[in-house]
Design a protein around this nucleic acid. Structure first.
Lengths: 386, 386
DNA sequence: CATTTTTTGATAGACGTCGATCATTTTCTC
DNA sequence: GAGAAAATGATCGACGTCTATCAAAAAATG
């Protein structure tokens, strides 16, 4: 009845009603020894001293090859895993993390910031220290300078809201040669110069928006007015591309107008939305790939009568409220809270040189007014979104 | 350029071990002392011995109130957080966890199982052992017996896919008096007899399904045929209720037919769906609150021409495929992988008597064919779902 | 073979906490 | 104010790892 797997995981099947329930079933000794072998055990099994075993596992050098082999063998034979807690305790390991986040009164990044603070607070009992570094938004030069400065502090890991630019490659390479783990967050860095990317695929986000827009307009067809901050912004361009692809392929009865470029400015967006709402040819859907939704929502609120089907990105205070008030239909969100959690886990795993915890892919989440998280987004400032 | 930004960079450092501290601004000292105060420091600051401080923080009793106050005060003043790594090392803490999961060839619970195994594997290096206990599905008696047996083994925490029954109260109470932490997973236990519930609100799930159905049928209105396994199943009833509420309130042009009861049997569902498809009055939408979607999908696949708008629950191999093949429109999923992760975190937090990590509410997730996770669900058996 | 170099063994102190024990001091009770 | 009870202080040995140091042994070198 009780299967015991090799590792430390014993999966035990207590008999259900079917087979006799009589009394206590077999083993699974309550006080059983569950803690694994120590390095001392390994040394003993390998027939070497603790010191030698230590030299091997910590790569201190000056060990004969045959000793290395003996120890390696014993490690695998006994299934030794080093006790991270003890190790960190001993060397007073402190995980020094830094997050490079764009500045500004951007509601989305305020959400990111908030969650970093919360998470940092929680992990403080695990000796994790966190620095949030403000970087002027969307400036390659500023980001470059910032990354360059990081080498002055001895961080163990850095999460960067990145930009795609060859300029960044050098400072990133410098960082990594100093043993700092680097990951991209929300927006990727040059591929070869980071260990991981934590963020969504923006093409997928655009496709998802398109699917929902299509579903919401199956019968009426019609015209979709799109908005974007700038087509130079990679994420905006990708979302738009994904959106167009799906509409063209699966909802041919609808047509997608070229995006109105708003620079993510709510005022611009408001004016643009207003003129679209008053156009001769009625627009049946709005899709804003970028930020500035406050303006879009205002325009909609000001216009009486029925409104176009409306999809925007990123759940923040005002987009959440607009969902509740029925001013927009859907919010496609990238769950920055989940991303931040993942970033912490990933950085710690990289620093400890172990596998990151199993976790599903990050996929854009669809919010309607009914599946909204209760957590309030109390960021005072909510002008932009990205 | 670089010099310009040298002073613009604003680094906010969050001291790792100062618990309540929000970020203190200012530059970092690269080699700065980051490790926080120890219990010895606290004792000294409080003007008591280490032993007394220890007695206070570990609640060993036999301490005068004024000593307790002095220590508590020093703790908050210094921002002492106990070093979990050291503590666990010292007491050779092993987290013995058990998951009680219904048996059967249920694709959804296979997903749960798989993720438990993966997560357990990962945490094995953190001294976490996991037992998966198979319980005959939906049987209060079996669950009762199983919980009763748990007291024989000294688990530290147990996650139970629960049932609502007063019968369970006694064994649960027994477990908890023995110091075992109990949480409900996916399906709740009697409220007073568990420390937390990890799962979605099924009313919300139903509401979400309704919202999407409404959006997908705004103009055509029409009839919605619902399916349920059994109305005695609490989750099924709740989903249906949420669904009806939203349709009635926000999409009055649609009407909801009483559910066809399928016992979650694919064959039954297939027949029911087929007759609905051939009914005189055309049905414009299907909503299955329960399992057995294989049958529903078969019926749809067999019927030529356009099909009703189709919403089901739980993303598993076949529902995923059906989304891709355009046989259904939406899957409302409760992200069992996220739930399992949360269960681990919650149990560990409860056992350590500390705050669980910050995490957003669990909300039903909406999948369309574009935002599907790449992870394959390789469960061979996929008969049922809920 | 003598000398240098490389490789080993033995061991010690630290990390911060836990769970003890035992002796001492303070407080309470009558 | 004596005796009992409660509270406190002092200290010890774990836990498993890391980082040393020093001496001893083995291997390589000329």
């Amino acid at each position: 009845m009780i299967d015991v797997y090799q590792k430390m995981i014993d999966v035990c099947h207590l008999a259900g009603l079917a087979s006799g329930l009589s009394g206590e079933m077999g083993p699974l000794q309550p006080g059983g020894n569950v803690s694994g072998p120590t390095l001392a055990d390994v040394a003993h099994a390998a027939g070497v001293s603790y010191a030698t075993a230590d030299r091997v596992v910590n790569k201190r050098g000056n060990v004969a090859q045959k000793s290395i082999d003996k120890v390696r063998d014993a490690v695998t034979r006994l299934g030794y895993v080093r006790n991270v807690a003890a190790a960190n305790l001993s060397r007073q390991r402190v995980y020094r993390l830094a997050f490079l986040i764009p500045t500004g009164t951007n509601a989305f990044f305020n959400r990111v910031r908030e969650h970093i603070l919360q998470t940092a607070d929680h992990f403080s009992s695990d000796s994790v220290t966190v620095d949030i570094v403000d970087v002027p938004a969307f400036s390659v030069d500023a980001l470059h300078a910032c990354i360059g400065q990081l080498t002055a502090y001895d961080f163990d890991g850095v999460a960067i809201v990145g930009l795609q630019s060859v300029t960044l490659e050098k400072p990133l390479a410098d960082l990594r040669t100093r043993g700092v783990e680097v990951i991209g967050l929300v927006s990727d860095l040059p591929r070869e110069f980071r260990s991981a990317y934590i963020g969504i695929d923006n093409t997928v986000a655009g496709r998802t928006a398109a699917r929902m827009t299509g579903i919401g307009n199956r019968d009426r067809g019609g015209i979709i007015q799109t908005f974007a901050g700038s087509l130079n912004a990679r994420d905006h361009a990708e979302r738009l591309q994904g959106f167009r692809d799906v509409i063209a392929a699966d909802f041919p009865q609808m047509s997608v107008l070229d995006p109105i470029l708003t620079k993510d400015d709510p005022a611009v967006l408001r004016d643009a939305a207003n003129s679209a709402l008053q156009a001769d040819q009625p627009v049946s859907a709005f899709y804003n790939v970028g930020a500035g939704n406050v303006g879009l929502i205002q325009a909609i609120r000001e216009t009486p009568g029925s409104r176009p089907f409306c999809v925007v990105h990123e759940l923040v205070a005002h987009s959440k409220q607009a969902l509740i008030d029925n001013h927009i239909d859907l919010v496609i969100d990238q769950r920055p809270d989940v991303e931040v959690n993942r970033a912490f886990a990933q950085l710690r795993a990289l620093i400890d040189r172990r596998e990151p915890p199993p976790a599903p892919d990050l996929m854009p989440t669809i919010y309607v007014q009914d599946n909204l998280p209760a957590n309030t987004f109390n960021s005072a400032t909510d002008t932009q979104i990205t």
